[in-house]
Design a protein around this nucleic acid. Structure first.
Length: 582
DNA sequence: GCCGTTTTCGGCCCGACTGTTTTCAGTCG
């Protein structure tokens, strides 16, 4: 059983928290940065450990010899001796306790030493017994805050889905559109980079009247709780999601937007480039500090050369604007400097959807309604791809070959009746050996075959997925890992291997736009595109309104550096027919 | 513990906010 990157990253974060609770300096940051890079690494770090040892693991950004050795130790033995010692000194549910708003590693350490608090339950009990306020450095207010935040922490110990957070951000942007003090309002942070899950919603507003903006923010009808409200920033919770607002003056808006969009590693690259040019970049602007004695004297030291817009911030560093989706320190600053940033696919480039369902399987609408919905969006084509029966299909949802033949007739009948091209397809199931759940003769009759894994969604799926993409009748590999965000992590597989096979076999790899999936993820798309594979961005719609989810898929593809040329369903009908061998 | 096209040693981002302090610590982003 392989160890997932997430699991390794969680361990390293626990390491960081335990060290921080002991007042160790600098190491916690090192472990945290290593954890983040392990989590985001596009291949299995455990495999690196097994195949190349500590040397291979230390190739991961911000992972050095010491942490690499610990990763190898964990992969080989299932534990890390030093971590076990730290846990013995501070035997607490660190992740659970620090998930309480306002409770960090140091607080955890103090409350364990003073009150023996080890779990969320202990924390709640101590707060109710009014014991926490007796501890030096704590008071009644802190105790009340802990008590009110424990319950929330218990309910939501996971990150928010992009698909939940983005509509909330859309709503507050509409709210701010009517506030005269707001000159500009943009989403920042990981939400602006369209990460599949986010910690909170970051909003940035340009205004000369910060107080009025903060007031309008806390008055927002969707704000359930005001967490804090200062003169230049404020935080509320809405629908269980934390929303952070920052207000800046217009001439610093671009610099602040760049700064708060991140990622941190991207910003470090940008800052390094500034330093090379005798410039300083921070959230207030770009400053020429070549003639300044002490550039660190104050935040706005030197002559301001940029700040009002992001374009001018990047331009001051001789760079074009880097699209937010690329700001992950995966080579984008170098590409920008060399003028080789990709011309990323856009939502409006999409001309059809190749994966959707109807009442024939588990969809909510008829073939005709799904076709008309696509036509209303202005699509040129769509592929009706209901579930076939087979492994992973429960409750009689999937169609057997006879039913699929029957459905084929109805698809052809509807197709003859409408102006857009309707492909007859299926979503077949990939079994554990990489075979399909539909007969080859029927597959050959269909226009566009989507093959997806729906069962046995753990372990290494490389061979299985290669088998599927090499099947001569398969055109699209649907949601390749089968992951469900916050619920299951899905198959592990070597993206490069599957993508190379897919490129050879003329099979597209799907970015499933459903916000619970976003599968492939951006990092994998980047590897796939580099390997020459074609991408399909599909919504897996079960109703016409779900076609709107396509934006999540497109932005995920953008996170993978995909251009419109890389994405099958931005092509013309004729080009898609050619790809499908029709 | 990590990192380096000025460093293989000596630095590590830092400001806002809150609550507890009576000058600051912890958390968060």
């Amino acid at each position: 059983m392989s160890v997932r990157n997430d699991e390794l990253a969680d361990l390293l974060e626990e390491f960081a928290d335990l060290l921080e609770a002991q007042d160790v300096e600098y190491k916690p940051r090192a472990y945290r940065q290593a954890a983040e890079n392990v989590r985001e690494h596009t291949t299995s770090v455990a495999d690196l450990a097994r195949e190349g040892g500590a040397d291979a693991v230390s190739e991961v950004n911000r992972v050095g010899d010491a942490i690499a050795a610990k990763v190898v130790e964990y992969v080989e033995t299932g534990e890390i001796e030093e971590l076990e010692e730290l846990r013995a000194d501070l035997p607490v549910d660190m992740a659970g306790l620090t998930s309480v708003e306002g409770v960090g590693p140091k607080t955890v350490g103090t409350l364990y030493r003073e009150l023996g608090v080890r779990t969320l339950d202990d924390l709640e009990t101590a707060a109710r017994a009014e014991e926490i306020r007796e501890v030096s450095g704590f008071g009644a207010k802190t105790e009340e805050n802990i008590l009110s935040n424990v319950e929330f922490a218990r309910r939501s110990n996971e990150r928010e889905l992009l698909g939940d957070a983005r509509p909330l951000a859309d709503d507050i942007q509409r709210h701010f559109a009517d506030v005269t003090a707001v000159e500009r309002c943009e989403v920042a942070g990981s939400l602006r980079r369209w990460k599949p899950t986010i910690g909170d919603v970051d909003l940035l507003v340009a205004s000369e009247d910060a107080e009025a903006v903060v007031d309008a923010f806390t008055d927002w009808e969707e704000a359930d709780v005001v967490i804090e409200a200062g003169t230049g920033k404020a935080s509320v919770r809405s629908a269980g999601i934390r929303v952070d607002l920052r207000v800046v003056v217009p001439e610093e808006f671009g610099a602040a937007l760049q700064y708060f969009t991140g990622s941190r590693d991207h910003n470090i690259r940008v800052r390094d480039r500034a330093i090379e040019r005798g410039l300083k970049v921070n959230e207030y602007g770009v400053f020429d500090v070549a003639d300044v004695d002490d550039a660190e004297d104050h935040q706005r030291a030197g002559e301001r050369v940029a700040g009002a817009t992001e374009e001018e911030v990047y331009a001051a560093l001789d760079l074009p604007l880097v699209p937010p989706e690329l700001r992950e320190d995966r080579g984008e600053v170098r590409a920008a400097a060399e003028g080789t940033l990709p011309d990323l696919v856009r939502v409006e480039d999409v001309r059809g959807d190749l994966h959707l369902h109807t009442t024939w399987s588990d969809g909510r609408h008829s073939i005709r309604e799904m076709v008309e919905g696509a036509a209303e969006r202005g699509y040129d084509y769509l592929n009706v791809s209901d579930h076939a029966t087979g492994p992973g299909m429960v409750g009689g949802v999937g169609l057997d070959d006879d039913e699929l033949r029957e459905q084929l007739e109805e698809i052809r009948a509807v197709a003859d009746d409408v102006d857009i091209r309707v492909f007859a397809g299926v979503e077949a199931n990939i079994d554990e050996e990489g075979g399909l759940s539909v007969g080859d003769d029927l597959l050959a009759e269909l226009d566009c075959v989507v093959a997806s894994p729906h069962s046995a969604l753990d372990g290494d799926g490389t061979d299985r997925l290669v088998g599927a993409v090499e099947h001569p009748e398969v055109n699209v590999l649907g949601h390749p890992t089968g992951r469900m965000l916050n619920r299951r992590s899905g198959l592990d597989f070597d993206v490069g291997t599957v993508a190379a096979a897919a490129a050879d076999a003329n099979t597209a790899l799907e970015v499933n736009a459903n916000p619970n999936r976003l599968d492939l993820r951006g990092g994998a798309v980047q590897v796939a595109v580099e390997a020459g594979a074609t991408i399909a961005v599909d919504t897996d719609a079960h109703r016409p309104e779900s076609y709107d989810l396509v934006r999540y898929g497109v932005h995920t593809a953008r996170r993978g550096w995909a251009t419109a040329d890389d994405v099958l369903n931005t092509w013309s009908v004729e080009a898609v027919e050619d790809f499908l061998g029709l």
